[in-house]
Design a protein around this nucleic acid. Structure first.
Lengths: 115, 115
DNA sequence: TTTATATTTCGGTATTAAACGAAATGATAT
DNA sequence: ATATCATTTCGTTTAATACCGAAATATAAA
């Protein structure tokens, strides 16, 4: 990855991307589930995910027709891993993120998708 | 300041602001000196400084007709102080920042200003 | 193979942020 | 008080980013 510092901060400079990172801290999510949580179009969510992926914050893995996204457990960039290993320190004061946390538990892709 | 996380990352998501932070790591600078280093208009530099100041990254102090800017030695936000106390860890891979470091030493407000 | 579902890519619009110069402000010196 | 210089604020233009819907792609099921 070898991202330059400004790109790392740019990736973190959008509230919706911070919401996604924090949601993925709870568990693996597919695009549909994230769209449901955040309330943006699928295509927009996909775009945000690709920015986070590009910097090494998250990984994707295919499972049938779904694409699962998860926090990268072993980022090559030390700054990215520093952020990820202390996510609660860096991101904790936005009301919406606290609300999201509760909602993530109730998300079920069997219900959300296929609609 | 009690800044929310996304604002902190937004403040860091511009290369010119990172350049300013790193330059202030070397020493206190006035707006003219920073304008000379970065190559932007005074008004633009002033705007960048106010964004960094708003988040608590830097402090200003007036000295005659000059306004000196410096790294905030005691930021109230833990995230801001975490960034500032490890600036070399967070910001170190942009070529221009390495170039800037050499130039800062040669800046002299007596020569730069008053022109 | 056709159909259905999930995701990504593309093209375009809307919002946000960066940049400038000019005018206004603040401070010092004449 | 007037002039000068550093800085900030204001109004505007330009560039970057966020967003959407439609079309394209990929996988799975019928």
């Amino acid at each position: 990855m070898n991202e330059i510092s400004v790109n790392i901060f740019k990736a973190l400079s959008d509230l919706n991307r911070l919401r996604i990172l924090k949601a993925l801290q709870s568990r693996v999510l597919c695009v549909c589930e994230i769209r449901e949580l955040i309330g943006l179009a699928n295509s927009t969510v996909s775009q945000h995910l690709s920015i986070l992926k590009e910097c090494g914050f998250i990984l994707e893995s295919k499972e049938g027709k779904w694409v699962n996204y998860m926090i990268n457990p072993r980022p090559s960039d030390l700054r990215v891993s520093a952020i990820l290993s202390s996510l609660d320190f860096w991101i904790n004061d936005e009301d919406i993120i606290i609300t999201d946390k509760k909602k993530v538990a109730g998300l079920d892709r069997k219900i959300i998708c296929c609609s």
